[in-house]
Design a protein around this nucleic acid. Structure first.
Length: 559
RNA sequence: GCGCUUGUAGCUCAGCGGAUAGAGCACUGGCUUGCGGAGCCAGGGGUCGUGGGUUCAAAUCCCGCCAAGCGCACCA
């Protein structure tokens, strides 16, 4: 069990004060209220504040300001809290002790790269499944948002103490894949001078032609005179494998990595598809109509029922997704599962939740995060994204044009619920003045100070942090200390988009400190303060590194 | 038509019951001799889409309207 967060300590202080006042009889209260402690927007209002008096005024019939004064009088100061003040119209403001803040520099240095870790997750097993685009073509820009969101969220949850598995679901059993295989075979035949007809739902992109050529290079023309079905099967296996590899490489290019690539086909081979369907049948959620098998999700409040097995006998995508979630929760025993889907799948959410419930799994254990569409522009021109026509900008192109770090920062800073327009020209043009560089520059500056100190053989290990009294020094420390709190919050709400904003604030505090406080000095009388400040710089670097790392961005020493 | 999501500074976006609504970019004006000026400081710019309601308190919660995106298949 790690130490409680600072904000939790404050909450406890308020709770104790409330209890003390009640015992003294100065306060009548039926039930203990929920105590909200927040970070005030203005520094005059202290480091923490609670609005409890305002919320309690009615029940206690005491004037909120008087109530605030009463509470403030019951809160002890000590090593951490310098003073507690009541403020109109009814806040209690907490001010941290300078000596305590200074001491935190040592705490951060000792924590090192584990600074920012909390144990909210307590080792619970969590799966994040994201991207999961059909391996019928390369990943395009539209998928980037979910990819970046998922990878950053996974990092945050790991820092929050969850045992996280990042998974990519390969939809390799459906009709789309058949169309893809046939498209490759067609291009293969064409490349070898044969007449071939592209299937109606075939994929037109040039990458199919390249893929066919690659297959000719490694396999020759041996599929040409093979039985059609056999050729599709063999060429299909090769194509799928190559496509999955390309997708993996492209995603790795923007720092998105997976712990596991899960194949849809395995669900059928391992019999989990049958098991899941049988559970639904046993629980009376299935019925046959029009020669198809339906999942009666209206029984669970859905708008309409959904087909699980087509009249042709083929299972739908939904059916294998049910089996997949059975696999996640039951076979592999994940405590909670997060799916990240694009907005075009939002209609699928209620029935997926229903299906999970029908399998006998508490539906709250599944959270589906929807990331809204990204529409692409190049200047005035809207770029249409269709994999089938091959008219799209790939993730790889985007990464090459804009850069991995800027790309991640850009997508990460926005809440997934807002639809966004991405102007490629603008992104490229602005990349040199992108906020991402503001953060990285602060880190590089930080690193170069330490480098200089080492070059001059300065030993700062005995630095006395109590010399750090400049407002900008204390501001920087305060900013650093917000990280663990932020990690807790982001993990609870599954909202990593706060991270870039925090990093900006931290960078701002660092630049402010840099302007006001000379760190490395050639004056001998500055040696003591210099050593103290080097400790601060060192601890700030830890926090920069942790923040950038969670965002999946690089922390350059030089730019 | 119904459902989900979104409308905050010129632009891109945070904030999602509390104390004078924030940041970056853009704009205006400052920062000379020392750790990286990709920086710092100051300033202008907002009836938080709109009309009601709830509350001591609403950008934030509820309802209507307007606008945008997505969905409403025996596609995935």
């Amino acid at each position: 069990m790690s130490a409680p967060l600072l904000i939790e300590t404050i909450q406890q202080l308020v709770a104790d004060a409330l209890e003390a006042a009640r015992q003294e009889g100065v306060l009548q209260l039926e039930t203990m209220p929920v105590i909200q402690v927040e970070r005030p927007g203005k520094s005059e209002h202290g480091d923490f504040a609670t609005n409890l008096p305002l919320r309690l005024a009615k029940a206690t019939r005491i004037n909120p300001l008087e109530l605030a004064q009463l509470l403030a009088a019951h809160i002890p100061t000590g090593d951490i809290i310098d003073r507690v003040e009541a403020a109109p119209p009814g806040f209690v403001n907490f001010y941290l002790k300078e000596s305590w803040l200074q001491q935190q520099v040592e705490t951060v240095r000792q924590a090192g790269n584990s600074f920012g870790n909390v144990d909210a997750g307590q080792g619970r097993r969590m799966m994040i499944e994201f991207v999961s685009v059909n391996p019928t073509g390369p990943v395009h820009v539209g998928h980037t948002r979910g990819a970046v969101l998922g990878s950053a969220l996974a990092n945050v949850l790991e820092a929050a103490g969850y045992d996280v598995t990042r998974e990519y679901y390969i939809n390799d059993a459906g009709t789309q894949m058949q169309a893809f295989y046939r498209s490759v075979l067609t291009r293969y035949k064409e490349a070898l001078g044969r007449e071939a007809q592209m299937p109606e739902n075939g994929y037109q992109g040039d990458y199919i032609i390249d893929l066919a050529k690659e297959i000719i290079e490694s396999e020759g023309s041996r599929f040409l005179d093979q039985d059609e079905e056999q050729a599709i099967k063999e060429i299909g296996d090769i194509s799928r494998e190559k496509m999955v590899a390309v997708i993996g490489q492209d995603l790795a290019g923007i720092g998105v990595e997976f712990d596991n690539w899960f194949s849809e086909r395995d669900l059928f081979e391992a019999g989990e598809y049958d098991t899941a369907i049988n559970i639904l049948r046993d629980n009376d959620y299935l019925s046959e109509r029009d020669e198809a098998l339906w999942f009666n999700s209206t029984m669970l409040g859905d708008e309409k029922d959904n087909v699980v097995v087509r009249s042709s006998g083929e299972p739908t995508y939904f059916a294998s997704d049910i089996a997949y979630h059975y696999n996640k929760f039951v076979s592999r025993g994940f405590d909670t599962v997060v799916d990240i889907w694009g907005a075009d799948h939002q209609g699928h959410v209620p029935r997926m939740k229903s299906a999970v419930q029908a399998l006998g799994i508490e539906p709250d254990r599944l959270t589906v995060l929807i990331s809204q569409m990204v529409t692409l522009r190049r200047g005035d021109q809207v770029v249409k994204a269709s994999k089938r026509t091959g008219d799209f900008v790939t993730l790889k192109e985007l990464a090459e044009e804009v850069g991995k770090d800027a790309c991640r920062f850009f997508f990460l800073a926005r809440t997934p619920a807002t639809q966004m327009e991405f102007d490629l020209e603008l992104a490229k043009k602005e990349s040199s003045e992108n906020p991402v560089y503001y953060v990285q520059y602060a880190h590089a500056r930080n690193a170069s100070i330490l480098k200089l100190a080492r070059e001059r053989n300065i030993d700062w290990s005995t630095g006395d942090v109590s010399l750090l009294t400049d407002p900008s020094e204390l501001e920087l420390i305060r900013s650093m200390l917000r990280l663990p709190e932020l990690v807790t919050q982001m993990a609870a709400t599954l909202e990593p988009h706060h991270l870039p904003h925090y990093a900006m604030d931290l960078a701002n505090a660092f630049h402010g400190f840099y302007e006001n406080c000379r760190v490395v000095s050639s004056n001998e009388e500055d040696n003591a303060i210099s050593a103290a400040r080097l400790k601060l710089v060192e601890s700030a670097q830890i926090v920069f590194r942790r923040s950038l790392e969670m965002m999946g961005m690089s922390a350059p020493e030089r730019m």
